Simulated scan of single mutants.
Amino acid sequence: MGRFLQHQSFPPIRLDTLCLPTKMGGLGVLNPKLQQGALQLRWLRPLFQSASSPSGLVLPWLLYLLQHYLPDVHLHLPFIFSDLRHPRLRTYISPFFNLFAACNLLPHDFDSTVINLLTCLDIPLASAVVVPHGLPAFPASWRHLQIQDAYEINTTLDILSCHLPSSFPHSPCILHKVLQRVDDHSLFLHAFVIRACLPQSILTEQFPDLMAHTGTEVDPSTLLSALSPTFPWKRLMYHTTYEPSNGVNSGLSSFYHFLYACPLKLPLWHTLWLTHFGFSPQFSDIHNVLYKFSFPPPLDPTSHPASILGSVLLALWRHHWAFIFNQSPFVAANATTTASSLLSHLQSEENLDQRPFSV
């Protein structure tokens, strides 16, 4: 059947660095690529955990796009295996581009992973084999194939077995070459495929610590867990070292810390809030604005609260990246000036749009 080889892995994100707090409320990671990946992973967690009951605005939209372009693929598998991604979802303008890139940075080590037979059939064949060094690569013209094109479920033994050549669903010449290369050891099946080809009794006897490959539907959960074996998905949040003393949401994650709970950034919110809403905010006020779009009435009825919020967030990010790339300290007064300037510019553009045309 072949032998167990270590899966080639993508350059991994040091997941342990994601929770390193800094005085700037950042991620503790200076590499911009890892910063972007870490930020995207934070939003992948609800996508992986809430596919059956999505909430909010963004998550249902993302799930709709996945179902539209990949109607016959489990929604989680394209994040794990790049060959399953629809070309329209891979472009730079796709909302999935950064999400896929973040997943690519994680270690794809499935040596100890056990998946059920139905899940195995849906995996790309290119991701199910390893090419030994110095031998011909897996051709690009073969990358459309999935395991189900070469293997089927043997219901008698409850294992995967090769299709007979006469029953290949399509591309018989290519599939014959694939299986021939497996037989002559110029391709090796991955460990999770080999396990699917072994009866459960043999698998349990040889590997008593491994799970059984049970299940009657496609379930990529063990594959997702393998992407971050030492760092549970539930901990992909940014932990704070700042505990608020006003009793609201104590124990905030570092994500809240980054947005508004950081002592360096909180004055930005207080100043703009007092200027436009007439009172000093509590953490609950800012949280409700960011997550529930629950705005207090502005002092100036011509100023839309969402414009105020957008100006604050844009100023916060501009000064955050100035710190990351240029080592410019985050100064609340400077960020406040930037936010006020952005809001003033936006209001000028809105007034220009609303000015009646001269006759």
Rank of each mutant, 00 (worst) to 15 (best):
L264D: 15
F110E: 07
H276R: 02
V131L: 08
Y92L: 10
H257I: 10
L39E: 15
V359Y: 14
T113C: 12
C162I: 06
L5F: 11
H144S: 08
F323H: 11
Q67H: 05
D285K: 08
H68K: 13
P298C: 08
L175Y: 02
F207V: 05
H7W: 10
L179Q: 10
K23F: 11
Y242Q: 14
H320L: 07
A322G: 11
Q36W: 11
L70G: 00
P165R: 00
L121W: 05
F330W: 14
L75D: 05
N246R: 12
L175M: 01
P244I: 03
A306S: 08
P21H: 01
A212H: 13
S82Q: 10
R235G: 12
Y260N: 12
I286D: 03
R45I: 01
M24N: 11
F207W: 14
L252Y: 13
L15Y: 05
V312D: 04
Q6Y: 09
R85H: 01
H213N: 13
A226D: 09
D183M: 08
F207H: 12
L117M: 10
L203C: 07
F192I: 05
L20F: 08
L342K: 08
Q146I: 04
S348H: 11
I93W: 14
Q8G: 05
S94Y: 02
R85M: 02
W269D: 06
S303G: 04
I123C: 02
P305M: 09
Q8K: 10
R42C: 00
W61D: 15
E217L: 09
G28R: 04
P71G: 03
L145H: 01
V73W: 02
V129R: 00
F188N: 14
L299D: 07
V218D: 06
N104E: 15
C262W: 10
Q206M: 09
L272I: 13
H144R: 03
M237A: 14
P21D: 01
D353Q: 15
P305V: 01
I194P: 10
R235M: 12
C262F: 12
S82Y: 10
P208E: 05
R318D: 15
V29I: 07
E217K: 06
S280N: 13
S127K: 00
A128W: 04
L259K: 08
R85K: 03
T22V: 06
L210D: 14
F255M: 15
L309G: 01
N104V: 00
D219S: 07
S55Q: 15
D83F: 03
I202A: 12
Q354Y: 10
F293W: 14
L57F: 12
P54W: 01
F10A: 13
T271A: 12
R355T: 09
Q200C: 10
L224I: 13
A137L: 07
I159E: 06
T230G: 13
Q40V: 00
A137C: 05
D219W: 02
L264K: 09
S280K: 06
S250K: 09
P71A: 01
I153F: 07
T337W: 13
I153R: 06
P267L: 05
Q180R: 06
H213E: 15
T119Y: 08
T240K: 05
L268D: 07
E152W: 15
L18V: 03
G25W: 02
P136S: 06
F323A: 05
S167E: 15
H133D: 15
T17P: 01
T119A: 06
S294L: 11
I147C: 14
H276Y: 14
Y151H: 06
L84K: 03
N351P: 00
D285E: 15
N249Q: 14
F330N: 12
F231M: 09
P132S: 01
